[in-house]
Nucleic acid binder design. Structure first.
Lengths: 137, 137
DNA sequence: TTGAGGATTACGAAAATCGTAACTCACCTT
DNA sequence: AAGGTGAGTTACGATTTTCGTAATCCTCAA
């Protein structure tokens, strides 16, 4: 993972369909080198997979969830990850324990998810933030 | 968004680099149709972008950033998005204004980013949470 | 200096993409 | 019913990208 790898990754993160030839031009090397490096990054698992970010709706939000101290946080995390419209579920350090990133059809759907979370016995608090805008690094 | 679109999306989610020709074979149509539909899905915003899921096997964190009231939050957001190791930058509602999701080499690199953020004139506060575990929905 | 191993480049063949024109088909209008 | 319209699909040649492989370059160590 040197500087060249990082540059390639940052281009692919923005658009994973950028041709090797164009990446090569941008980072100042040859198509073959880009190809070799991308293959290596995939082998090493640095690139997990090529995918599409879909937005079924248009409201994104972060829901911070607090759970009881004696709860199996990982189990709750797994459970929530199964819900529709959920992009990520993170176990985090800090006041709350779980952060759920959702991409819902509308604010109503976000609200449904919050309600659903609050109804879990393990959950003691939620705090929601709408994501107003997103930039990709 | 009919059934054909869904099939195409599900193939792209699995591997966004699947050629149109192969998708066409799998869903029983022509390359041109797949191409038209993917283009339409992109135009409609259903497909936000083609990207790579990376796991540098390292330290992920959420950095919540508060900025001064009279600051152009969007400009700060754009600026931070350029930093290395930054996955997303979100403008959010709530106490803080910006959430930066980073995937850094180690805790030291996370710390560097926090320092870098605090050094911006516009930034008045930061709060960091390590992401201990991630599930995808 | 010499050799080895890994990374990079070069290049032709194969494959995919792209632009565009022709075609199909459902739906309207008269 | 005939004719027209427009969205979606197919066809196909030109262009671009990918892919396999061989040659070259570089660095390090013996």
């Amino acid at each position: 993972m040197d500087d060249l790898d990082s540059q390639i990754l940052s281009i692919l993160r923005r658009d994973a369909r950028t041709p090797y030839t164009e990446i090569a031009d941008q980072v100042g090397t040859s198509e073959g080198t880009v190809r070799n490096r991308v293959e290596r990054l995939v082998d090493e698992g640095v690139i997990e997979r090529f995918t599409v970010a879909t937005s079924t709706g248009n409201v994104k939000a972060m829901i911070e969830v607090g759970v009881d101290v004696d709860v199996d946080t990982a189990a709750v995390t797994d459970h929530i990850a199964e819900w529709p419209a959920v992009d990520f579920v993170w176990q985090v350090s800090g006041e709350q324990d779980i952060v759920v990133v959702v991409d819902a059809a509308d604010t109503g759907a976000v609200n449904d998810l919050i309600t659903q979370a609050r109804e879990l016995d393990e959950v003691v608090s939620t705090k929601t933030r709408l994501i107003l805008d997103e930039r990709v690094g």
